[in-house]
């Protein structure tokens, strides 16, 4: 049962991250995911201090809003101060992360968050925290929260597919249709932030990036259709979760590290395959 809980939680988180991450990869914003996942740390610490608990919804949203703030700040440095985009990202997220680390070490006795957890989370502890109603155990809390998030993301993709699609591939055309690129940008960023905050405990700040970027990039090497890319991404995410659990068991290492290794292996295979496969000759249209 424990194995199933861990793999299921990992798979659900990987699917959520992958679905959103596909759009980050296509929009050339992969490092924005990296930045957000680091920068939410102070938000999480402050949320802890105020609420004293891990997962109540308003606090999750509060912490996620720090992620959105990060994208606003990056945009400000990039557009208003004319700093290079990569430097804007680097300056902003390291600052917020540093503030987060200072808060963690200052409130060490009040915040139930150690530094290791910040970096690589502990999905192995997921089965220890079960939801109990009456005498019945309803499975791990983390799994419920992650599933709720996945449903939100699926609803978002279902309802917003067209808007996301057009603003991703042809923002100018979107503008001429009256579809707001700014709206879809911030909608996506809000969900990425929320996902990062929710995944944080299970997989940690940096491995969230792996789940956001690696499965979508792998899928991207196999297909050039958005819909099949999304399906493949979910598939690779689920394989990474299951495979990661077993190699972690085998080598006695961390599960989130194992998930990253499997996703890295899948990417390596896809990359080597794309090297071997001859490029199709360009055809006249």
């Amino acid at each position: 049962m424990e194995a199933i809980y861990i793999i299921a939680t990992g798979a659900v988180i990987a699917a959520s991250c992958g679905l959103l991450g596909s759009f980050l990869v296509l929009r050339k914003m992969a490092m924005m995911g990296d930045a957000i996942s680091h920068a939410v740390l102070p938000g999480i610490v402050i949320a802890f201090l105020i609420s004293g608990s891990r997962d109540n919804i308003p606090m999750l949203v509060g912490a996620a809003s720090v992620g959105v703030l990060t994208t606003v700040l990056i945009g400000l440095l990039y557009r208003k101060a004319k700093l290079n985009e990569d430097a804007s990202i680097g300056v902003t997220f390291t600052f917020l992360f540093a503030v987060g680390v200072i808060l963690v070490s200052y409130f060490a006795d009040q915040v139930d968050l150690d530094q290791d957890c910040v970096l690589y989370g502990e999905i192995a502890y997921v089965p220890l925290d079960l939801i109990k109603i009456g005498d019945r155990f309803l499975g791990p809390r983390a799994l419920w929260i992650a599933s709720g998030l996945l449903i939100v993301i699926l609803l978002f993709l279902w309802k917003g597919y067209k808007g996301l699609y057009i603003t991703t591939f042809n923002p100018d055309y979107a503008g001429s249709l009256g579809i707001s690129t700014v709206f879809w940008h911030y909608a996506l960023m809000s969900l990425v932030s929320l996902t990062t905050v929710i995944s944080f405990e299970s997989v940690g700040a940096i491995l969230v990036v792996a789940l956001l970027v690696v499965p979508p990039a792998t899928a991207y090497l196999f297909t050039h259709k958005l819909k099949s890319m999304l399906w493949l991404t979910v598939l690779f995410g689920v394989i990474s979760a299951a495979g990661g659990y077993y190699i972690a068991l085998w080598f006695d290492g961390s599960v989130s590290g194992g998930m990253t290794i499997i996703s890295g292996l899948l990417f390596t295979i896809a990359f080597l395959r794309s090297l071997i496969k001859p490029k199709p000759a360009p055809t006249a249209k």
């Binding site: 992969a30 690696v214 990039a217 290794i261």
Partner: peptide, 23 residues
């Protein structure tokens, strides 16, 4: 050597290497 853009390849290498390191 692939159609993957610079930002994504940075993120891939960063996170996979780090994951291996953590493991």
């Amino acid at each position: 050597r692939s159609k993957i853009k610079a930002d994504t390849s940075i993120a891939i290498v960063l996170s996979v290497f780090f994951g291996v390191g953590i493991f």
